[in-house]
Design a protein around this nucleic acid. Sequence first.
RNA 1: GCUGAAGUGGUGGAAUUGGUAGACACGUUGGACUUAAAAUCCAAUGGGCAGUAAUGCCCGUACGGGUUCAAGUCCCGUCUUCAGUACCA
Length: 951
Amino acid sequence: MVHYKHIEIEKKWQEYWAQNKTFKAVNHSDKPKFYALDMFPYPSGAGLHVGHPLGYIASDIVSRYKRHTGFNVLHPMGYDSFGLPAEQYAIQTGQHPAITTRDNIARYREQMDRIGFSFDWDREVKTSNPDYYKWTQEIFILLFDSWYDKDVDKAKPISELESRFRESGTTTINAATDEDLQEFTADEWNSYTKEEQEKILLDYRLTYLADTEVNWCPALGTVLANDEIVNGVSERGGHPVVRKKMRQWMMRISAYAERLLNDLDGLDWSDSIKEIQRNWIGKSVGAMVSFKLDEHKIDVFTTRPDTIYGVTFMTLAPEHELVDSITTDAQRDAVEAYKKATAARSERERMADVKTISGVFTGAYATHPLSGDKIPVWIGDYVLAGYGTGAVMAVPCGDERDHAFANYFAGQEGMPAIKNIFEGVDISEEAYTAKDNTPICNSDFLNGMSYKQAMAAAIEKLEEIGAGKGKTNYRLRDAVFSRQRYWGEPFPVYYKNGLPQMIDRKHLPLELPEVDEYLPTEDGAPPLGRATTWSWCTMENKVVSNDDDRDCVYPLELNTMPGWAGSSWYMFRYMDASNENEMFSKEAQEYWENVDLYIGGSEHATGHLLYSRFWVKVLHDLGKVTVNEPFKKLINQGMILGESAFVKELEVEVESGIEKVFISQGVNFDGKVKSGRKLHTDVSFVNNSNELDVKSFQTWRQDARDKKFIHNDDGVFKVSREVEKMSKSKFNVVNPDDICEQYGADTLRLYEMFLGPLEQAKPWNTAGITGVYGFIKKLWKLYHNENGFHVSDEKASPESMKTLHKTIKKVREDIENFSFNTSVSSFMIAVNELTAQKCDSREVLEPLAILVSPYAPHIAEELWSLLGHEESIAYVDFPVFEEKYLVESSKKYPISFNGKMKFTLELPVDASKDELEKLVLENDKVRQQLEGKTIRKTIVVPGKIVNFVVG
RNA sequence: GCUGAAGUGGUGGAAUUGGUAGACACGUUGGACUUAAAAUCCAAUGGGCAGUAAUGCCCGUACGGGUUCAAGUCCCGUCUUCAGUACCA
């Protein structure tokens, strides 16, 4: 008997696949195409943990299965290699992020190779590679050179807009832009200077410069993500953070809101992800209304123009641009103090905290556009500057939040009594938010109308008097595209008199400059501000020293692009990854179209998945791609969580004072405990029975060396466990390498699938892995006897054929339904049955090897070659299910009484409903049950169940 | 707060359209083999009650209701956990 040696076998086939380029995809084929893609990994310093490969294994199973069923499969892998962690590490250690990234990628690659993925590595891409990001820069230029024509609902070249301006000014233009843009005639346009024209065009481009609110940390001199702020201070260092305006590149994704919403219908994505995107886009139909205040005008968007006569006050975001000019002197101090307090709160905090109500009266009154009433204007932090216009008309009788605000400040200056416009509704306790047919009152011409009628009538009136118009609003905001970071794509942009200019495409890539440190400059400029050679010479068309004072030298952009830039179009680069002349060839894109199966985490629902849809639509409008959407089918794999281990540490009172001791989980300390806490310990020091290797722990944690450890009675020291996100900082990372070493990649692959449904989050626990490893060994044994490899050419028994075909059916169905965990179970059942049947027939064992090959490719290849085949198993036809092997003459029917199953009866499978009833009623056991009772109803479902309702 | 998921034995999970709840594994217990351990193999294993036993009865899919001959599955309400919340990737 030859023992199963996973290390040898797996190494052998991994080398074979690499040498023979078994999984190389070709861009022309008679076969149908299939494109399976995993979400781009960021190569983190912690290496791949067991959670990462979950999705990769699933997509690999599908890819291998598709090859077996006659598809030309594109299954690539690469790295989203720009990002904060490498930069953070650079800040701390001075090591160039490129080096960190290169090392991390090498590690990832090594780890992935060990798991036996069928990637076409010739197509690997890295977003931080200049060969790649030159195309990302080119797409940025494409966006800059485009505007959105709402009349035809697509992006168009900016040159067309220019010629239309020359001919007819803004009169015929219906572009996606901000509100209130300057209008002009053709003559006026033609009289503008080049610079003036450029300024105007900048407002129309799909990427444009704007002032937006950011979380600014003065001490760190940088902008922080909400994520990096804890309780209002920076996570790193605990410095104060304030909201501040900053001029940044924006992406006009809002222009695509309607298409991003509508096209969701055609996608084979889960309803929950589509719903998340719908909510994120947040379409609402309503009206834009203008309230006059002296010479100013406050615009608000409302979804309830029918309630316009219920406006009791207005609230502006404290950051609203009009706040300073309308505030009265009497209120100025209070307003200033409130603005300052608000600046210290993050947006997320302001949204989440609905319990604390706060605000300040500005002292100003706006004029109601219809009634002419004086409406007091407040500021309140529940109104966010970035949402809509940053101002709301408050209708307390019809909105909960306005109601709460009005009651909180009731009786104070500037807070009049709530106006009720709902006939016969009591709003003293709560707002009336239902949109039913309750007639409206106290509303002049709207009196007696229903919600629907009043909506239309109010909008009509507002449009008539020029104080508003019907409008569809989206919650989706234009995306900030600038980052004040080093490790990202440089913008191909230089500035001439403060106006941005694009570097010509033929001079790309514009490579990242070297800097002495990866920190912002002293005066708060981004890290690229430290580069001494970072100016653009328009004569030589290259980067030159900042000291070069020729007239043709201009400063380059100092921001870099965000993480999502490179990942928004990478799925197309894989189609033609080594093309040096263009992003990808037309032919390659037309052949591969878009991604047939995309697997990744649902945490990307509103980021990556929305941004890449946006870019693909832009590329489509500009004729660069033939598809409207990047990903046809999406599967969201659940996160694999870590089981963190904790050691309990107590502070106890002893004679000499206070002492720290470590105590085993479950042991009671007899003595005075002052305080206690639990410390993370690395999970590698803990076994499956939660017992800590105290020595290793002490070596790892210096301060634990001289401490007392209180053990259990049986001498072991136990830890407690908690499920958390798998992360380096929680010391609960499990490395797949160790599993590959001990049990092999095939076992790892099967086990990750066996853990549960792909889409469900689950904690990682290796306790069950021996069962899967046992299965692999039993599978191996099926093909061997005492003397070594052995199969017979004799006909298989009907039972074995039944087992085989039952398994073929199940595995095919499971892969089509992405239910991989149940496949593994059915493999186990098959092997258990075939072993019991002592099956050694080639007729069964050959197809079985193909069946398992998508899941456990190494052992499958080895068995296939032992079976006498010279070619790889990878392209062999998948076994086909034949019904005839499963045909049975009888079925075990559950017999129930009042819905409760009592026993089963073996009954003929082809019996009709009446025959079944007759047969069952003749049965002794049934008679016994029915004795002394009346049958009220008999339910017979052929093939399913027999149920008697008795009384 | 808002949005989206999830909740089934000691554990991971299975259960096609509403039709035998707990497949398949892990763990545990007992046994075989062994000087011993590991490995391997066999048997039992949701909880409770009754019985020498065969077996029988009751409870049971987060909680409280409902629909139905029949509910883990459908409906209403509640609780808990997880994820996202616009500069983490």
